[in-house]
Nucleic acid binder design. Structure first.
Lengths: 200, 200, 200, 200
DNA sequence: GATGAATGAGCCTTCATTCAT
DNA sequence: AATGAATGAAGGCTCATTCAT
């Protein structure tokens, strides 16, 4: 019998190697040969586990997306369900978690965004992610704001999150999570009724 | 008998073709053959005028950056030099000018951002651009806000601009310039002293 | 505790799977992975039983050749040993037995012929087969024709058999055994002394 | 300006190299690298002129087919239009012209036949060729035989031609054109009315 | 100035084979 | 006996670049 259960070892191993290589040489330079070498396996194995390079890239993006959304859920689970400010803060913090803002992850995100414009499967994945953030934000905001305002604030918050994130990714210093979080919360404070903060 | 002045014709022609091809097939798919065909010239000519594909891409990014910064300058020139709100609005509007938010330009920006992470020359170009936006914003804000606050608001404004821009680029509907501008101005209104708006 | 006698099960199983796969995707497309899947076994097993892909192909060709020659022998055994016409007819019929003219077998033959040109082992196998047909035919013909004529007729008969066979294999309608047999017998009738048919 | 008219030089050059390589190592072994080397050009050029390996193989088969059909037409043009025997002989001779029976051409034919079974484009090409031979033969035969007989004889003649051809291709001695032609004409003589030969 | 023929390196993928289990 | 994970060479193809014309 062959080694069993290798799939659970190899798949994450190759996905990590992919992110590492994208970090080092970009998506364009991320050849299967390089990824294979980074994972200390033969290039051919990628076809075995992912059916091709596209499958590996798609799986890598799914992994990044899953990391983000599970991070959000984890942070939300720790916030009191009746404290809107705490819950919004949780969502914002999750988006600026070090695991998401490390140069490696940041470059991977950026690479996939650019790629997604011309790749239907990646595009769909990214759309879901984008809408989910908005949906999370608006769900909380509607508890304390009229509908129109909830929508407007959620759009602005999402733009702030992505904006700080993007500018950080493009900067040699990386994302300054503390500053970004603080400035976003500053904005938030001005939008919510004062009563929200009394309970916090 | 060489035709003189062809450079001034060929270079913009090839830069436009490059943006068109990036829009259609992405930066990855933008081969010199495709770009040459889009410009109705031979692939070999690119080396003649740009010294290679890299030179063409660099020139294309310079062109995009120049379009933006000249747009900002043009809008600023039309705003009264003593009306801070008008000047900030001018900067914001220039960033959401249709010439900048068209899908073609948007995809080009995104592609170059991702590329810049692993390409020193492009990285430098993009850094200059990034800092210039901040510098423009802070210059105006310092007229009406204390230093610290001016910095904070400028960072937030820049994030909002890039954030709305990015989310628009990634959405099938493109950038909604009207909504983005409005929401950013909403934020701005809350940050500036009321006196600013009386004069306007 | 190794299962004994598996060789007798696995070898025909794999040979049949090989013919099936050649029928479906051609010899070029017949990878060990595909053959293994068609036989519902692991690709690695082929090396175990045949020492490699070449061994399997060789065994498959041997199997096809054996089917033909045992078919000829079977048909000959049923023909009276003194009836030349009956015996020649038996040889011809055996060559157009449905088991030999099925698209699957036909494609396998054709594939092996082409392959044999550049594969000494297969070439030898096919030579033996070719000569055996001639030898069978001439042996019978010499009973009723002078040597020279027997040789000429045997060559012509062999060409007719292979010719109808090849044209059938290349046609979408397959081999028309009835028509082929009839036309060959028409020819034969003109070559043999009338006395041959009186006894028949 | 680049070298002009190279297409007319390169295309036949590469087609000949293809046949040469197929002769040497078979269709399976005929890689673009080998073909390129045989033609003393870079492998990449094949894509330039034929759009890929498939295009080259298709063009090679077309070339072989064209050689045959133009050979038939040439021989027919030299035969008196009212001498059926001469015209049929011309068709037969053209099929056994040295240019068609050389080991190189023979192996190419065989390889393409096998390939055609699983390649729609090649299959169609080969079908046209097959039908054309029958059509030529029947056209002449109908001048001197009733319809049914003309059909039967044309089928038999075609089988004889392909049969001798195939057996020759598979033999180390190659096709014996003289013997094949003679034996086929022997058959023909028995099928046609004696009057046909008086005029000849 | 401009062409496009030609090159050759590099890419992704396929595949026969090996081997630990 | 049998598996299928893993290898690594080889395949076809793409592509930036060069160069004779």
């Amino acid at each position: 019998m062959p080694k069993v259960g290798m799939a659970e070892i190899r798949r994450p191993q190759l996905i990590n190697a992919t992110m590492k290589v994208i970090d080092q040489v970009g998506l364009q330079g991320a050849s299967v040969a390089l990824i294979g070498r980074a994972a200390s396996v033969s290039p051919g194995i990628i076809n075995h586990y992912f059916g091709g390079k596209d499958g590996l890239l798609e799986a890598t993006m799914r992994s990044v997306l899953l990391d983000l959304s599970s991070g959000v859920r984890r942070q939300l689970a720790e916030a009191p369900s009746d404290d809107v400010v705490a819950r919004l803060t949780a969502i914002i913090r999750a988006n600026f978690d070090p695991s998401q803002t490390s140069p490696q992850t940041a470059k991977t995100w950026l690479a996939f965004w650019a790629q997604a414009m011309h790749h239907p499967v990646l595009f769909r994945l990214q759309r879901v992610n984008e809408k989910r953030l908005l949906s999370y934000l608006r769900f909380e905001l509607k508890k304390v704001l009229p509908n129109d305002q909830a929508t407007a604030v959620s759009l602005t918050l999402a733009a702030l999150i992505d904006g700080f994130w993007l500018r950080g990714a493009l900067s040699p210093d990386g994302v300054n999570e503390t500053l970004a979080t603080e400035l976003i919360l500053d904005y938030l404070r001005q939008q919510l009724p004062h009563t929200c903060f009394e309970t916090a």
